[in-house]
């Protein structure tokens, strides 16, 4: 059986909130290492990969591999009933029909219990190769969100060009064009506000802004976001969580 307690319900709330518009139904794969999820969006342009390691739970127990097939909208309806600071315990049998969720207020004076029905989901699992990316950019997640939001007002697509001088996000649309260039800098008072660019070769790729704006819903999970790019391969957008990560892969656009 699975029994996993999170110190703060908000971690799972934020994960589900961030991905529920990309993915409707998916399996939460539970094993002794933790809980993982991998799913493509309906149009097969983006891939979501999430891991909450067992060390992020206390206690964590999972005797055998269990796939929890969940409708994310249903899960979100239940998770909205949890306060951010509530303790959240997930429980399921070895061959479960439902997932049990227990919310305990931090003052322990309220217990809420919900069961949601599970579904059989036949999901294709994709192998993601280890990639040495040509450019890795770490920047404040709020900054990335703002860039995507601002440029999406002008265009459907953004080109991301990284070279030794910095990283340039540029777009052009019917009303005109725009760009934002970030240069590496270190904020000595707050490391999370720094922009770091590691580059082995220049890259220039074009992506759909609609998806990037969607990924940015994960911004509340982490103060920083990591963008990994190589020419001709999907962009990796990664938000680190305490004991895991939420990763989005986005296929590039090609041609003009």
């Amino acid at each position: 059986m699975l029994e996993a307690r999170l110190e703060q319900a908000q971690i799972l709330k934020k994960v589900v909130e961030a991905i529920k518009d990309l993915v409707q139904d998916c399996n939460f794969d539970c094993n002794d290492a933790g809980i993982q999820l991998q799913a493509m969006d309906n149009s097969h342009v983006a891939l979501v990969s999430m891991k909450l390691g067992s060390e992020g739970f206390s206690p964590y127990r999972c005797d055998r591999n269990i796939a929890l097939g969940i409708n994310l909208n249903s899960l979100m309806k239940v998770l909205r009933a949890a306060a951010n600071e509530d303790l959240l315990t997930l429980k399921a049998e070895d061959q479960p029909d439902s997932l049990n969720l227990l919310f305990e207020s931090s003052s322990q004076d309220r217990l809420s219990e919900y069961d949601i029905k599970l579904m059989d989901i036949d999901q294709e699992h994709l192998g993601i190769p280890d990639t040495e990316y040509a450019a890795t950019i770490t920047l404040p997640s709020a900054e990335f969100q703002r860039i995507c939001r601002d440029l999406s007002a002008l265009s459907e697509s953004v080109s991301i060009e990284a070279n030794k001088d910095g990283v340039k996000f540029a777009c052009s649309g019917d009303i005109g064009n725009g760009s934002v260039t970030l240069r590496p800098h270190t904020n000595v008072e707050d490391e999370d506000k720094s922009t770091k660019i590691e580059l082995t070769e220049p890259v220039n790729l074009t992506f759909s802004l609609k998806y990037l704006v969607n990924f940015c819903k994960a911004s509340s999970l982490s103060a920083t976001v990591r963008l990994c790019l190589s020419n001709e391969v999907p962009l990796l957008v990664e938000y680190q969580m305490g004991a895991g990560y939420l990763r989005f892969y986005l296929a590039p656009k090609i041609g003009d």
Binding site: M40, H44, V45, A46, L47, E124, H125, L126, G127, I128, P129, S157, T206, S208, V233, P234, Y249, L250, A251, P252, K253, I254, G255, D256
Partner: peptide
């Protein structure tokens, strides 16, 4: 116009 690639053309099923 640019065309959107599919993610499954980069990552193969396991």
């Amino acid at each position: 116009m640019s065309s959107q690639r599919s993610i499954s053309s980069f990552f193969t099923p396991v």
